[in-house]
Design a binder for these strands. Structure first.
Lengths: 355, 355
DNA sequence: AGAATTTTCTAAAACGTTTTGAAAATTCCC
DNA sequence: GGGAATTTTCAAAACGTTTTAGAAAATTCT
């Protein structure tokens, strides 16, 4: 391994100048910079990252922790995000270190790693409504960036999130404009912030349009196909069955489509289905039969912003300058259509059909 | 952050003694060791890992690289292994750094990371028959440990693997003892070493028992349910349909069971199904209907050995001392039974039934 | 008691960078 | 051509540990 000193010796310079020449400092003669760079390349010089880290006080390592049983089952996007982050971080010569914990206490691994003080910061995924990890890291003064955000408002830490409330409102708007007045909502697990946000958007959109959805048509569960199928199957047997389903994920929508098929209902003839689409390569909404109408916000899009925010946060930027909320695209495909005739009646508070 | 010097100052000792006291060196008075440890604890001392790494020349970081489209689709065990490894490595105060690459050239990310020289070693997953990564790392002299092994024999690098050939032989033996003579094999993708090893075991077991399976009943594809379903469906329409299926994964077996149901065949009455079970929490072979007979080798079991091997390898152990091959357990449940009467005939080379 | 060991500790070097403070070299201006 | 201003370079310190070489203190031996 050639080191700075070797290059310096070869050129009759001091290590200091060589360091500056390579790191683009202005106070070094352009001509010598050229020479230095040439020799560095010739000697195949690679700065020793560990040494750099020691003097800079930064480890260049960002931690991401998997809540083992929870995330794997609940959040298929975790690895998608991790993969994206690792490439982006590599651009900054930073590394993503991965930890898994199956502790009941989700804060425990953070406590341990913060004590070790070897990571520069954390990236958090899938925050819950009152996320313990966020509370701990805030109290500990450790830098972190959240993919998503806890609560319903704008918090005081850096985050990248989609506007979940808006996305639910867009979906309701589309369906209502098509004449639907009985819209069921197969939401994600209730403890997740995104689910709470979408629920809030859903409710407010309904209210704004004078609609009502009885609680038995609003469900919370893991983003899985059989949840969609089972929930839809029962709801469709109701005397006042929904004419439209809003699904928290394409996987849930797949279940709903299956249930519809089994019930002999055509989509979008008898039933409209709309879902939110994270654009995870495995489950493609376009390939659905019929192609799925979705609000679309590729989860991959979060990776760039999240890394940028982390880097800038470590460089001392203000949290308030590191908050982004993007709106999802509404993509109308074949799974939504006008409400079937004779089904235009809405639910009222006591969930009796008034047609 | 309290450092070594602070403790030394507080006790009127030199940093050297403090360092030795904490690291259990013999040449320090037991009494002073006690004092040092007490003060270290009182001052909440944590050694700066970066500094340790600089002097030791080790980074304490082990790399694991995801071949992005390939692994995600093909190897559901990747993250299972990663999660296990990260906990085990943590016991040694080492970190697992994760990288994802969607480059066509699977060696590229290794080349890049080896050049950076910041990782102590790599853990490789799912080797192919002639694995490029292994060849590169061997040539580069970089430490690595393989989960699995390339080729059919015993290679010359550290690895942990299950005896894939034996597992196929066990399965064939069980089925043949039950009277089956027409055994189909839904194997994994042909380029993976494990698939080649199982195929070899399958063939040799058949040969030893005077059986033959025509190539149209041996398939290679990704470990997915619909592969199992489709392949089984076609095979079952054959005039000399298999009476038993050997599946490379429980997921494939799930597909086979579906195909059997659709074809109106009962398992194990009309058809026997056996699979290899990695024991990944998501797909539980016990919960199958009927409960699945499997060769079982929990993938989690690899994590401990793999980390141990890596640690010992970095400590200078011989590769030949770091090779483990374990045999899978054969667990007989409800999906295997005696061959149906009238179906005892085997295939011959030209795949005509001789009964 | 003095020499020879052994035990216990220390000062300083090392790991490979970056950065600070100062010195040397060059350019500028009159 | 001489001083000031500017540009370019350097020596040394710093980051926080471990380790080497050796000194001091304590113990054992004769």
């Amino acid at each position: 391994m050639t080191k700075l000193k070797d290059i310096a010796a070869r050129l009759g310079l001091s290590p200091a100048t060589v360091s500056r020449a390579l790191n683009g400092f202005p106070e070094v003669n352009e001509q010598t910079r050229q020479r230095v760079q040439a020799v560095a390349r010739a000697m195949n010089y690679r700065p020793n990252q560990i040494a750099q880290k020691l003097v800079s006080g930064r480890s260049g390592m960002i931690g991401m922790i998997l809540r083992s049983p929870v995330d794997v089952a609940t959040d298929p996007s975790f690895f998608e995000v991790m993969a994206g982050l690792s490439s982006r971080l590599a651009d900054y010569d930073m590394d993503l270190v991965f930890h898994a914990s199956n502790a009941e206490d989700e804060v425990a691994p953070y406590r341990r790693l913060v004590a070790k003080a070897t990571l520069d910061g954390f990236i958090l995924n899938a925050p819950t409504v009152e996320d313990q990890r966020i509370q701990f890291l805030t109290a500990a003064g450790v830098p972190f960036v959240v993919h998503g955000r806890a609560g319903l408002g704008v918090p005081d830490y850096p985050f990248f999130d989609i506007d979940n409330a808006a996305l639910a409102r867009q979906s309701v708007a589309l369906l209502h404009d098509l004449g639907h007045r009985r819209i069921a909502f197969l939401n994600g697990p209730a403890n997740y912030a995104y689910a709470a946000q979408r629920l809030s958007g859903f409710q407010s959109a309904l209210a704004a349009r004078g609609l009502v959805t009885p609680t038995r048509f609003i469900r919370h569960d893991r983003l899985a196909e059989d949840y969609g199928q089972r929930a839809a199957a029962t709801m469709l047997t109701d005397t006042a069955a929904p004419t439209a389903f809003l699904c928290a994920s394409t996987l849930i929508a797949a279940g709903v489509l299956r249930a519809a098929r089994k019930a002999g209902l055509s989509v979008p003839g008898d039933l409209s289905v709309i879902a939110h689409d994270d654009a995870i390569p495995q489950f493609r909404a376009v390939n659905f039969e019929p192609a799925l109408t979705v609000t679309r916000a590729p989860i991959r899009d979060a990776c760039g912003p999240l890394t940028d925010k982390m880097v800038r946060l470590l460089d001392g930027a203000q949290s308030s300058d590191l908050q982004t909320m993007v709106t999802a695209d509404l993509i109308v495909r074949q799974s939504t259509g006008p409400v079937p005739v004779g089904q235009q009646g809405g639910w009222n508070e006591t969930s009796v059909v008034a047609d």
